[in-house]
Write a protein that binds this DNA or RNA. Structure first.
Lengths: 108, 108
DNA sequence: ATAGAATATTCCTGTAAAGGAATATTTTGA
DNA sequence: TCAAAATATTCCTTTACAGGAATATTCTAT
């Protein structure tokens, strides 16, 4: 699992941008307006999201339209799924572990 | 969606710890050994994971056994699901947006 | 009570990242 | 070609965070 997506989403403004773009593509100015950020910071955050592959640009005339790239979200989903049975059940392996501590079992 | 979980998972060592603990509870020393980190940094990262609610402690004698708390992962899963249809289809709303730009439709 | 094991915390330092302000760049429209 | 709009980048400053080393804390066992 690539850590970059977590890093990109760890910033509140960027998470807001992603949630906004999930509803549809937008140009920079409108993102800034809707989220009440100023333009330079918006561009900077979009750059980070771009680098993380969460977003892509489509230049149209004067504007730059940003939209979500689903791949990283799919990857995150796959990661969660691969561990789902572990964190869903979580059948207290704690008891087993206590046995290990008491020498009844061995640790790998 | 709380940003704290992303922030906690944005550090490679911490992501490793989480993936390790998903397979079962472990005490600090063993985590450090398995991930080849030294003990103080391990404790520090565990603290961050604790604060983020991703992990909980169970003191047993001398040791402290850490284990996964599934709630934040469930929350993350719910977040992904709530947007799934958006990023899965992504039916190019770009065309719609281009119409907006040309004044054929209006923006909210 | 005390030594020792396991773990947590503190102090220090370097580095990365975020916001503000200013400026550069790109593209359009005339 | 030129002014203006939209966006990106740079510079600066402040803050947060990570690792290393040392030390404090907590608990056990004797």
């Amino acid at each position: 699992m690539n850590v970059q997506i977590f890093s990109a989403l760890a910033e509140p403004n960027r998470l807001n941008i992603v949630e906004l773009l999930l509803e549809g593509p937008l140009q920079v100015g409108d993102i800034a307006k809707k989220l009440e950020m100023n333009q330079p910071q918006t561009s900077k955050h979009l750059r980070v999201l771009c680098d993380a592959g969460l977003v892509e640009v489509q230049p149209v005339a004067n504007r730059r339209i940003y939209r979500i790239k689903p791949e990283p979200l799919q990857e995150l989903d796959k990661w969660l799924n691969s561990y789902r049975r572990l964190w869903e059940a979580r059948m207290d392996r704690l008891d087993d572990y206590l046995d290990v501590l008491q020498g009844k079992k061995t640790l790998n």
